[in-house]
């Protein structure tokens, strides 16, 4: 069994998210090595994923970070005294 372009393109997200079997990964990798069109597709989706990750972090307010840390210290103290 060899993946054609359609099958390869259909698996793009599963490949990027590590949801394929080893056999399928081999098929996709082999196809990508020989197909510019599919390779560009994969690059593009990978790039979009990176852009989403970069765009979606928000520096939390100082106060929130302090509250979370204080909370954990309080819980730790609770464990120590248990």
């Amino acid at each position: 069994m060899t993946f054609d372009c359609q099958e390869t393109k259909r698996h793009v997200h599963e490949y990027l998210h590590n949801e394929l079997s080893e056999a399928e990964i081999k098929e996709v990798t082999a196809h990508l090595a020989n197909c510019d069109s599919c390779e560009t597709d994969y690059d593009l989706e990978h790039f979009v994923n990176n852009s989403i990750q970069d765009a979606c972090s928000e520096v939390p307010p100082q106060e929130l970070a302090e509250k979370v840390l204080a909370n954990i210290r309080a819980m730790q103290a609770g464990i120590d005294h248990a």
Binding site: C56, E58, P60, L64, A65, L69, I72, Q76
Partner: peptide
């Protein structure tokens, strides 16, 4: 408890910007 808190601070707390972004 101290080791647990230390690990948590070093490994989990740095994820706060991503978690906060999602929560927002």
């Amino acid at each position: 408890a101290a080791q647990k808190a230390l690990e948590f601070e070093q490994l989990a707390i740095p994820l706060m910007p991503q978690v906060y972004g999602m929560a927002l």
